[in-house]
């Protein structure tokens, strides 16, 4: 394989990994704190994309300077995160902590179904296009292949959100509270920690990750019903590969999946999708706690 092709594969892989990480890091964070695999995560990703697109088109038509559109994207994502996060956690999830896993998964699956149609009812079923933020930054060349600078922005947003989350968990008082809740819920309650609030905050952080992912991918795609279905299940693969509930694991998982997919597209296109789930099976079969995950005790 020549150096040129290798550079292209690495760049394509990074681009892809950036998006996957943004979605997966929230999924894994929520699992880490709440012990719930949130299937509706994908719908929040979709909502983020819709809201950001709709808001940006609206404001651009009102004469907003195009350079401000990046803030509009972020604002749209934050609005969605702050609406969906607390409401899903308080209204639905709160009632099923400690229930069987099938109840938890099915509840979030039902929320996915509901939000999926809510998007259609709010924004219609025809696709929306909004590419100004994507075009605006210009392009650069790697190994003779032109990439849009927007790729950098995506990687940047993704990496900063990851760093932010790690800082939040490791470097702040909030993080210490989160860790203590994860370690022992009862003791935390006894110590006077408002566990409910921690759960709401953690779930909202997860929702924000999905919404930001959706908002920043939106300018590069056509936003239309059903566009999230495959990304979501891929982010499941990322989380499983990295280790459920592990932030660094999500980073490693997205890099592996992104690079594997880029490698497959350039070399054996038929395996583009299968390779992701093959890796997932291999990791789960030989290291079920994921590459980064710690071994859990068997509960009796």
């Amino acid at each position: 394989m020549d150096i040129g092709l290798l550079t292209i594969i690495i760049f394509d892989g990074l681009n892809y990994a950036a998006v996957l990480f943004l979605i997966a890091v929230g999924l894994t964070f929520v699992y880490g704190v709440l012990r719930i695999l949130n299937i509706s995560h994908g719908a929040i990703y979709g909502l983020g994309a819709y809201m950001a697109t709709w808001l940006t088109i609206l404001l651009l038509n009102k004469g907003l300077p195009p350079y401000l559109s990046y803030f509009v994207l972020l604002t749209g994502a934050i609005i969605i995160g702050l609406i969906t996060g607390p409401s899903i956690e308080r209204l639905c999830l709160r009632r099923i902590y400690g229930s069987d896993i099938h109840i938890q998964l099915l509840l979030t699956f039902s929320i996915l179904l509901i939000l999926d149609d809510a998007m259609k009812l709010i924004w219609g079923v025809e696709p929306m296009f909004m590419s100004e933020p994507y075009f605006l930054l210009g392009q650069f060349s790697v190994g003779g292949i032109i990439y849009p600078r927007y790729t950098f922005l995506l990687i940047g947003v993704s990496a900063s959100f990851g760093v932010f989350l790690v800082w939040l968990v490791r470097g702040t008082r909030f993080g210490k509270l989160v860790v203590s809740v994860i370690q022992d819920r009862e003791i935390s309650v006894a110590m006077g920690i408002n566990v409910g609030l921690i759960y709401t905050a953690a779930f909202t952080m997860g929702a924000l990750s999905a919404a930001i992912g959706g908002a920043f991918i939106a300018p590069t795609i056509s936003v239309a019903p059903g566009f999230a279905a495959e990304v979501v299940v891929m982010s499941f693969a990322v989380v499983a590969i990295g280790g459920l509930g592990n932030l660094e694991g999500a980073a490693l998982g997205s890099l592996i999946v992104g690079l594997a997919r880029a490698l497959a597209i350039h070399l054996v296109a038929e395996l583009e999708l299968a390779v992701i789930y093959l890796i997932m099976v291999l990791v789960l079969a030989f290291r079920p706690q994921g590459l980064f995950g710690a071994v859990e005790e068997r509960r009796i």
């Binding site: 695999l37 896993i101 998964l105 299940v233 499941f236 693969a237 499983a240 459920l244 296109a269 038929e270 395996l271 583009e272 999708l273 299968a274 992701i276 789930y277 093959l278 997932m280 099976v281 789960l284 079969a285 079920p288």
Partner: peptide, 28 residues
């Protein structure tokens, strides 16, 4: 493989196997 797993791992591993079949049916 599956009989060794429980809970969320059982669910996820099943998901992974079905998605491999999906990917193969889709791409070949």
């Amino acid at each position: 493989i599956m009989a060794r797993y429980r809970g969320v791992f059982f669910a996820m591993l099943n998901l992974a196997f079905s998605m491999i079949l999906y990917a193969i049916l889709l791409k070949f």
